[in-house]
């Protein structure tokens, strides 16, 4: 049984890790580097990720390219929830890793996208070079190849959003009671 599943895993992971379809999601200047990565000079198509989907329902990967503000946060969480399992997140740029230059005093910026959704690969830089984004995609592919179908339930449990969607007329995301609030940094 174990042998069959591991053989199945190998084929399954080989297929899906070589066709990671990202979502077209760019909120600021990192998006320019993402566009550049998909263009002919750097050519993300070499890694099977050239199909930027306009709809989250067809995407496997969300590259959060750019600052996430409180106004944008509910939209990001909703897009993430609409993506089919298995789904992956690359936090691209300093703003989505820790808040970046808005970390100390900003009133409107979310301090790192990992407060909202679980992140697979952190990619620092302001903005990162296209080579760095390609490296992040390769790291993600390596991670995908280590996964097994047996752990799927555990995986889905770990990939829930970390905040609650607002209720009623509110537009502010609320803390989720079930999951501990992430506290790290200085």
């Amino acid at each position: 049984m174990q042998i069959i599943i591991s053989a199945l895993d190998y084929v399954y992971n080989w297929a899906r890790s070589n066709s990671v379809w990202p979502l077209t999601f760019a909120t600021s200047c990192c998006g320019i580097e993402m566009i550049c990565t998909s263009a002919s000079k750097y050519d993300i198509a070499r890694f099977g990720s050239e199909v930027f989907r306009p709809s989250p329902r067809q995407a496997d990967l969300i590259i959060t390219a750019g600052t996430i503000t409180h106004k944008m946060a509910p939209a990001l969480v909703r897009l993430y929830e609409q993506m089919p399992e298995p789904k992956y997140v690359i936090a691209m740029g300093a703003c989505t890793v820790t808040g970046g230059m808005y970390e100390n005093d900003s009133y409107s910026v979310v301090r790192g996208v990992d407060r909202l959704i679980p992140v697979d690969v952190y990619l620092p830089g302001c903005p990162p070079r296209p080579e760095a984004l390609l490296d992040a995609v390769i790291q993600l592919q390596k991670k995908m190849r280590t996964e097994t179908l047996l752990d799927r339930k555990k995986y889905i449990e770990a990939h829930k959003p970390r905040v609650k969607m607002p209720e009623g007329d509110s537009e502010l995301l609320l803390p989720c009671d079930e999951i501990e609030i992430v506290r790290w940094g200085v």
Binding site: H70, Y107, V110, R111, R115, L172, L174, I181, G185, V186
Partner: peptide, 13 residues
Amino acid sequence: YNQEDERLCWNKR
């Protein structure tokens, strides 16, 4: 202005 909104506790450093 001083940001003291308890709903945003998940965003505190």
